[in-house]
């Protein structure tokens, strides 16, 4: 009864505003949807001394970032298969993220599997959209994968293409 009286005492527009504010304050901010994130070149690790500096560089969905961090730990111990396992879990969360494929391809190269590296980069290129810098970085790594397979001429052409993209 008391509550009703209080409510009646509040003017209707004010009540509406209060309810709206109350509703908003109760809303939990929604986390990023993993399926809607588009990677850019900034999400790829930097190079340092001929190697990727760290697999965990860049801004990522929290779940993917946590897997990249684990992959980086595995990389530091040169546990390539384990690193690959974490990266593949990241891929299953974001199956079209070029930043995941890039890392997987690089780890594949460390494992001596240049064919798989090439295949993964082909996928990455499909999902890179129109991002030129991202495409350029993917092509440069692809050139390494081709070199490792003894396909030097194709690698040279790719590097040329990548140079035009600058």
């Amino acid at each position: 009864m008391v509550r009703l009286v209080v409510l009646r005492a509040v003017p209707l527009p004010l009540l509406f505003l209060l309810l709206l504010l109350g509703g908003l304050s109760g809303c939990t901010p929604l986390p990023p949807k993993p399926e809607q994130q588009q990677a850019t070149a900034d999400d790829l690790p930097q190079w340092q001394d001929g190697m990727l500096a760290s697999l965990s560089q860049g801004e990522h969905h929290p779940a993917v970032a946590s897997l990249f961090a684990k992959a980086e730990q595995a990389r530091q111990q040169q546990l390539w298969r384990k690193a690959m396992t974490y990266l593949d879990q990241a891929r299953q969360i974001q199956p079209r993220n070029p930043a995941v494929f890039y890392r997987q391809a690089w780890v594949s190269l460390q494992m001596g599997d240049a064919v798989r590296a090439e295949q993964l980069l082909q996928r990455a290129l499909v999902f890179a959209g129109g991002d030129r810098e991202l495409t350029r970085r993917l092509r440069l790594l692809m050139a390494e994968a081709l070199d490792a397979q003894g396909r030097g001429e194709e690698a040279r052409r790719l590097r040329q293409q990548a140079a035009w993209d600058v």
Binding site: R81, T85, R91, Q104, R116, Q119, Q122, R123
Partner: peptide, 20 residues
């Protein structure tokens, strides 16, 4: 996805493959 021994040692893990 993966195969481990009973003690948890990984024997194989299979990541994505596929030719364009």
């Amino acid at each position: 996805e993966a195969v481990t021994t009973a003690q948890g040692q990984t024997l194989s893990s299979y990541a994505l493959r596929g030719e364009q």
